[in-house]
């Protein structure tokens, strides 16, 4: 490993990489960051990091975050409804299986029972709710859900190697929150939509 060198990166004899490798590794920030860092050292780590457990307050926070996402999803649906051709594009075929799997959070985290209940309520009739969406929107939602699932799987794999890593724990928490937010929005948005025939 040569990350401690100060003049060049991996040149590999490639002109482009040589040019990249000549860039300075060090860039000084516009201001001295130490005073803010010093203040941060005095502040205790948040209880969320100290105790890795998902609580109902987590679900409530996710619900608040749902508002913005829901508005966006709702806008997308309404926009597509009023755009001829988008909802009936034969080239876009929504998959028949929901992206989210039950209890698919991997091996590391022991989720709190309140979170599990909240999530279980949100994934009820998931396939049916997805089916109510226009194909384009459904694909977007499924893509996001799949991305979250992939992230959870990868973070859990990393946590198996470094179980005490608070940063990985935070990343995992964020992924859980993202999924819960998306599921909540899906339920909220599709609740007013008729079933597609």
């Amino acid at each position: 490993m040569n990350s401690e060198r100060t003049t060049s990166g991996n040149g590999d004899g490639d002109a482009v990489l040589r040019a990249v490798g000549q860039l300075p590794q060090s860039i000084e920030p516009r201001r001295d960051l130490w005073p803010a860092i010093a203040r941060g050292l005095d502040q205790p780590a948040s209880t969320r990091r100290a105790r890795f457990e998902v609580s109902w307050s987590f679900a409530a926070a996710a619900a608040v975050g749902c508002l913005a996402l829901g508005a966006l999803l709702g806008y997308t649906i309404m926009h597509q409804r009023t755009t001829p051709g988008l909802t009936t594009d034969p080239n876009i075929a929504a998959s028949n299986q929901p992206t989210v799997q039950q209890a698919s959070f991997g091996n590391y985290a022991a989720l709190g029972p309140e979170y599990e209940r909240a999530r279980a309520a949100l994934v009820i009739d998931l396939a049916e709710r997805l089916d109510r969406l226009p194909p384009v929107t459904r694909l977007k939602v499924e893509k996001n859900l799949a991305e979250i699932q992939r992230a959870v799987t990868e973070i859990n794999a990393a946590l198996e190697q470094a179980p005490g890593d608070s940063l990985l724990q935070e990343l995992l928490m964020n992924a859980y929150q993202d999924e819960l937010s998306l599921l909540a929005h899906l339920n909220q948005t599709t609740g007013s939509l008729p079933a597609r025939t």
Partner: peptide, 13 residues
């Protein structure tokens, strides 16, 4: 990366 993840879940890609 965590900052990007927190700030950027795209419902509309």
């Amino acid at each position: 990366l965590g900052r990007a993840r927190r700030g950027g879940l795209e419902v509309v890609p």
